Amino acid sequence: MTRLNGSTHGPVKAAAAFVAGGALAGSVVFTLLRILQPESFWFVLATAFVPYAVVGYPVAAVLLGYLRRTTAPPLRGWVTGGIVLAVFGTGYHLGLTLPSYLGEHPRGDPDLVVMTLNLHLGTGDAEDAVALVRRQRVQVAVFEEVTPGERRRLLAAGVQELLPHEGGAAGRGAAGTVVFSAFPLSDSARIPLDHGSYRIKVAAPTPFWLVAVHGAQPLVAPGDWRADWDVLNQVVPELDGPVILAGDFNTTVDHAPMRDLLGDRFQDAARTSNAGWQPTWPRGLGLLTIDHVITSAPYAAISTSTYLVDGTDHRALVARLRIS
């Protein structure tokens, strides 16, 4: 086995210590954010990255294990403490992560297929979006950031040939949210969030309330983000019967407002279908899961998938649901 000589051992050890310290410190911060949920602006943003602790802790543990062998006895106890902390942190975050990969969920053919897609200020490729609706046999599609021009392009691409019923409204910039459905829509009402959001009754074979969501960005308007969640956590629990929420929430399942909403009644479709790591933003790199389909009984997720659509900055999220 090749051994490091003296000229390289020092720099390698220093690099390992630097990476281990950074990974452990960052992971501890993520754990504290997940537990304490501070509301300061930067903390809210950082909470979106909590899932990365499940990688950071093991990296720290492995590197600290390497360093411990060559650490002087007076400092070895500190390194050992770091290893123990990394092991416990790994266990804690595995407990948060594994339900996205393991567990029971419905199987078989879907009773309902729901899609959400942010069209990036009306610049998304409408033909590509409608082709995705056709390929995935989507029955309810929620589009965010639909400008009047983008709505016309969706219609020209044939979206109403597939989904003839329309709800919501187009708008300037990020304000427009439009729903296209295979089933009749009624009792539509705007929900006063920062961007266009609506509550609509969907006359599917098993009727449900659809909440089409486009929440504020905490990066741009942290106060509006909190206010939007105050509204959602007031409006949604008051809806009777089955409820499905779909859209760009600008929130992950690690944020406290989302966890408050989910509670015992609602389930995140990607998590409960054991879809695993399924980021929706940004489109190419895929760092965060901020777009969601959320269901209440009797709807439960069979599977979810994400897809790339030209011209967008989000990935489309398609959820296949079954009545359980």
Rank of each mutant, 00 (worst) to 15 (best):
I200D: 03
V62D: 01
A227I: 01
W229V: 08
A156K: 11
T306E: 13
A169W: 03
A53C: 09
V236N: 11
G81T: 00
S296V: 04
P110K: 08
I200H: 03
L239A: 08
V79Y: 03
V309E: 02
L121F: 11
N274H: 11
L219Y: 11
P237C: 15
L232S: 07
T8A: 09
W42L: 15
A175D: 12
D254P: 06
Q37D: 15
D240E: 12
R152P: 09
L45W: 14
G65E: 04
I244W: 04
L96K: 03
F183Q: 08
Y57S: 05
V130S: 13
I302Q: 15
M1P: 15
L210M: 02
V55M: 09
V293H: 08
T304Q: 03
L162T: 03
R34K: 14
G158E: 07
G26P: 05
A319M: 11
A269I: 03
G124T: 11
I35R: 14
P106W: 01
A269H: 03
G10V: 02
V142N: 09
G21K: 02
G223L: 05
E39A: 14
G77T: 05
V140K: 12
A156N: 08
R76K: 15
T123N: 06
N274Y: 02
E150F: 06
G158M: 04
L94N: 09
P222W: 00
A157V: 13
T251F: 01
